[in-house]
Nucleic acid binder design. Structure first.
Lengths: 326, 326
DNA sequence: TTGAAAGCGGTACCAG
DNA sequence: CTGGTACCGCTTTCAA
């Protein structure tokens, strides 16, 4: 491994000088700078991040904590974050929390022990004390937080829109899925939809689904049609569940969207490939990730931030599990 | 930040002693060990990974390079890796390469600069020189490599099985999708299927699809039925493309699987939620990730490894885009 | 069984 | 404009 000392020796200068040209700090005469640069390229030297990190007490690493990368909503987020962060020269220390306090604590520990300059967390359970006194900026993603900077989509509005659109298209006996009680964004969608449904001239029922997983989704779908065979509109808690319901409905021979309309939530890439293609409420996941990264980077660079809370719009993506209106 | 010196002072010993109890190296009398432990818990001390990493020239970080986490096959891999690695006390430095040599080089650089103890790469383009002289073990995932340890599924066999199963179920005019030419596993599947198809009593055509992306998938699907309207069996290069084809076929009013059979590849979680549920060749992605991590960890711990190449079996998952046989 | 001290590879202060 | 050097926090000889 070639060190700064090797470079200094080769260039016939001191390590201090090499450090200066490396970081473009302080004065360095042009010709010595060039000597140093030559030595650097000659030796193919590149500074040791760990040593730098030790002295400066900060690395170029950013912590990223997601509930579960296996949930199709998160890869988009992660990608948005990575693209932004990478373009600014930072790298990601990544972990899945499973919304498990123990794992989360382990990662927070890792992050501090490795001198990350900041972190992004998409945890949705609401117990913010865990994040106190961390010593580096934290951005919450996919949920609001009064104290912490955060980036999120307007879930409540999304819920409202979902309900409005399905009502507008003629469903009269709507089933609203509740989604995991501890996942805040899910509950906001739910509340939004509930709000609109309550005020509208339709019948509706709430079904208490408690998870998002692939496995469970099939279960909810079955249960839904057993309990509410006559429903003619479903507002699902996310696209996975919506896909499972669509599947079950087709299985039962229901015609979509004529007999039954379905609206999902998230707009994961796969939703477009379903048949009929899923109508859904889109959350701009990639952009959310990107915005979160930008926001964090501002804190890291100690720029002044105007809005510590960034809300991104949700939009109704009309595809073919809802009827057309004019 | 509380350092080893603080602990030493509190315990009335030297930093060397604290280090010894921390690492359980060398001799330390039981009662001094206890004094130290008390000081540690009292001060809530935990050692600085960066300092440790600098001296030892190795961290507890593992590099993970995936082509694109947004491709639904990779989150499973990533999760398998993370679970294993995390359980053994290691953490992940993660990046997407987009199969781009520049980005890849940037990450290799990051990994070395941050003293990773090893890395896993799922890159599929075959230019192994990039990985020479890295100074830490590398495990290739999702593809073979003669020199490097690697974990992969038997793609060729998968291709054969796909072809056998679709033939067995009566398709006579089969369309085989080629998949991205630079993605090795895709080409192996292709070759396997081609091999079986060539030797069988069926007509078939090869369609040259060059990517896996969601966006392109729809295009291939359209193109497929324009070019080969009379095809009665499709072997897709992965489940995304298969989903797009299923979608297009249903759109065109084809009855699945009676008129047209479709076999995918990968068995991503979503495939089960399609209607009809997708028959596919399963690659055990999670297990592959886990095995890759285990293999790497063996190298890291300098254990003797029996097989540097681990091949996992692929299996035909019979669902409803293929007909039943008895 | 313990402590002093020399690094690991950088950064930054201070003197010249 | 440049060099010497202390120091970041930990590990590991070496000597006591």
């Amino acid at each position: 491994m070639v060190t700064i000392r090797d470079v200094a020796k080769h260039a016939g200068v001191s390590v201090a000088t090499v450090s200066r040209v490396l970081n473009s700090t302080g004065y360095v005469r042009e010709d010595t700078r060039e000597k140093v640069m030559q030595a650097i390229t000659l030796l193919n030297y590149s500074p040791n991040e760990v040593a730098r990190s030790l002295y400066k007490r900060e690395s170029r690493l950013i912590g990223l904590l997601l509930p579960d990368i296996t949930n199709p909503f998160f890869p988009q987020l992660a990608r948005g974050i990575e693209d932004e962060v990478h373009s600014q020269g930072f790298r990601l220390l990544f972990g899945n929390s499973d919304e498990d306090l123990k794992k989360e604590a382990a990662y927070l520990h890792t992050f501090t022990q490795n001198h990350v300059v900041g972190m992004i967390t998409a945890r949705t359970i609401s117990d913010d004390e865990t994040y106190e006194g961390l010593g580096f900026p934290v951005v919450f993603l996919d949920r609001t937080s009064p104290q912490y900077p955060s980036v999120y989509a307007d879930g409540r509005e999304g819920g409202r829109i979902a309900a409005q659109e399905i009502i507008k298209r003629g469903s009269k006996q709507i089933t609203l899925l509740k989604g995991p009680p501890n996942v805040k964004p899910a509950q906001e969608r739910f509340q939004g939809a509930l709000e609109t449904l309550s005020g509208a001239n339709v019948d509706f029922q709430v079904m208490n689904t408690t998870s998002f997983s692939f496995h469970e989704a099939k279960k909810w779908a079955k249960e839904l049609f057993e309990k509410h065979a006559n429903t003619d509109g479903v507002i699902a808690s996310n696209d996975i569940v919506a896909a499972a319901i669509l599947r079950e409905a087709l299985q039962l021979g229901k015609s979509i969207p004529d007999e039954l309309q379905i609206v999902g939530f998230d707009d994961i890439p796969q939703s477009e490939l379903l048949f009929p293609a899923l109508s859904t409420i889109r959350q701009p996941a990639y952009e959310m990730g990107k915005e979160a990264a930008k926001l964090l980077l501002k804190y890291i660079k100690k720029e002044i931030v105007q809005n510590k809370h960034i809300e991104l719009p949700v939009t109704f993506i009309e595809r073919n599990t809802t009827r057309k209106v004019d």
